[in-house]
Amino acid sequence: MSARELVVLGTASQAPTRTRNHNGYLLRWDGTSVLFEAGEGTQRQMVLAGVASPRVERICVSHRHGDHCLGVPGVLARMALDAPGRTVTVHGPRDAEAHLRALASVADADVHALVEAVDATHDADVPVAGVAGARLSARLLDHRVPAVGYRLAEPDGRRFVPGALAAAGIAGPDVGRLQREGVLRGVRLADVTEPRPGQVFAIAMDTRDHPALDAVLRGADLAVVEATFLDRDRDLAERYAHLTARQAATAAARAGVRRLVLTHFSQRYTDPGEFAAEARAALADVGADVEVHVAADLDVVPVPARR
């Protein structure tokens, strides 16, 4: 099993369907888990997906619309059942703070729910938390109520080059010594390593196309983006402040996303293939190499291997 992967718990916008639960996206990242969105029924989807609730460190909600947060009480209740007395942090925009506190109160569960509001803006990433050595941040998007996109970015680092180590005569415990001390027998760490870009996960739910969307998605190895409508209904997307599959794919191309997960589908559509076809056509139009995955409930999508 990949140490970094997305478990899709629900893919429906507004109303669930026979095949789509309300939104829920669990990111497994180096031994911990972050739940993004918790629509109605998320607790049951976690059971079906085999998700261990004690590993969920925090819940990140994009905004206060019900299809993104009405499952919070059930998730907290499940956490209290599996690991009573534990602490979990719930994040959301300032506009949703009172809503999230009320939902945590409704749960009335043996879990310490800390609700932390994010004062996000369109213009900069706002720090949210540290997650297993990576930086979780948020940025305000463009929806009918304040909604944020989240970005989890691992710091850039360096990795050893086996051939360079062998040429320098560094092996066994000496590799660790060199890493700790920086220099060993005249060999510098920089002599036997190369840059290792940090991995990036991004999620952007309800939003119109906006420069802030590009900022949330920039350089993401794995990006989850709403595609509520198809382009033939672009007027509805604009009216209700959502994206089409074409707009989502085009934004991913602009931002240099590697693997794009489309989700948050309107119940008016029954053929997921239409979303894939529209997104891939948009990418072909701009000559972008972005892998497209049209999400289905209970899919597991790995974060791509490092470049």
Rank of each mutant, 00 (worst) to 15 (best):
M1E: 13
M1T: 11
S2A: 08
R4P: 02
L9I: 09
T11W: 03
A15G: 00
T19W: 06
T19L: 13
T19D: 12
N21T: 09
N23D: 05
R28V: 03
D30Y: 07
T32N: 00
S33V: 06
S33Y: 05
V34E: 01
E40P: 01
T42A: 10
Q43G: 07
Q43C: 08
Q45M: 14
M46L: 08
M46G: 06
V47M: 04
A49R: 01
V51M: 04
V51K: 07
V51F: 02
A52Y: 02
R55G: 04
E57G: 03
C60H: 03
S62W: 00
H65T: 15
G71E: 15
P73G: 14
P73S: 11
R78T: 09
A80K: 11
A80M: 06
R86Y: 03
T87F: 03
V88A: 05
T89P: 02
H91C: 03
P93W: 11
E97G: 11
A98G: 06
A98C: 01
R101Y: 13
A102V: 02
V106Q: 15
D108H: 05
A109H: 13
A109V: 02
D110G: 01
V111M: 08
H112I: 03
A113H: 14
L114W: 03
E116N: 05
V126C: 05
V128Y: 10
G130Y: 07
A132E: 15
G133A: 10
A134H: 01
R139P: 08
L140W: 05
L141R: 11
H143N: 15
R151G: 15
R151F: 07
D156I: 01
R158K: 10
R159P: 04
F160T: 05
L165N: 01
A171V: 09
G172R: 00
D174C: 10
V175W: 13
G176I: 14
L178H: 13
E181F: 13
E181N: 07
G186K: 09
R188C: 06
L189D: 13
L189T: 12
T193N: 09
G198R: 07
V200L: 03
V200N: 04
F201V: 00
A202V: 00
I203W: 02
A204G: 05
D206E: 12
T207S: 15
A212G: 11
L217P: 04
D221G: 13
L222Q: 01
L222R: 00
L222Y: 01
V225D: 09
V225E: 12
A227D: 06
T228F: 04
F229H: 13
L236M: 11
L236F: 14
T244L: 09
T244H: 14
A245Y: 06
Q247W: 02
A252D: 12
R258Q: 02
R258K: 12
V261H: 08
R268I: 05
E274Q: 10
A277W: 04
A277C: 11
A281K: 06
L283V: 10
V286I: 07
A288N: 11
D289A: 13
V290W: 11
V290N: 12
E291R: 09
E291H: 08
V292E: 01
H293C: 04
V294Q: 13
A295Q: 12
D297N: 14
L298A: 12
V300R: 11
R306N: 08
